[in-house]
Amino acid sequence: MAITRQEIEHIAVLARLEMSGERFDHLAGDMQNIVGMVDKLQQLDLGDITDVINTERKNALREDVVEQDYTPEELIEPNAPDFQAGGVAVPRVVE
């Protein structure tokens, strides 16, 4: 399948892209390379490959269990330079 400059110009109009003349030719070449790579992938013999998706598996993740619950004061107070009334006190910046 050949990608022409006219097809690239049409796609650019649909996508509302503004490009110069040389850019269309460059993009047409890039698109042709991509289509060529996809064609090569379709030629691969995948008959010996088994499915990698195991639909029998129900849940491979661990249970989400809370091991230890902390209050905000227990987490913030030891790390804050000035902890007052349940929050971090900061210097006033507006006068």
Rank of each mutant, 00 (worst) to 15 (best):
P78L: 01
D25M: 05
E73M: 09
V38I: 15
P78W: 04
L17F: 12
V88Y: 13
E73Q: 14
P72E: 06
R16V: 06
A89N: 12
R92N: 06
M31R: 01
G86C: 14
G86V: 08
A89M: 10
R92D: 04
F24W: 05
L75E: 00
T4M: 09
I49C: 10
Y70V: 13
T50R: 08
T4K: 12
Q42T: 09
V65T: 08
V13Y: 09
R16W: 02
L41P: 09
R16I: 03
H10K: 12
I8C: 11
L41E: 09
L75S: 01
A28P: 11
I11P: 08
E73K: 15
V35A: 03
Q32L: 00
I49S: 05
E63Y: 04
L75M: 09
G36K: 13
G47Y: 04
L44Q: 05
K58M: 05
Q6V: 08
P91L: 11
A80S: 15
N79E: 11
E63G: 07
H26T: 10
F24E: 08
E77A: 15
D45Q: 10
V35D: 04
N33E: 03
L61S: 13
T55Q: 10
I53C: 07
E63F: 03
V13P: 00
G86T: 09
A60E: 07
E22N: 08
Y70L: 14
R92C: 09
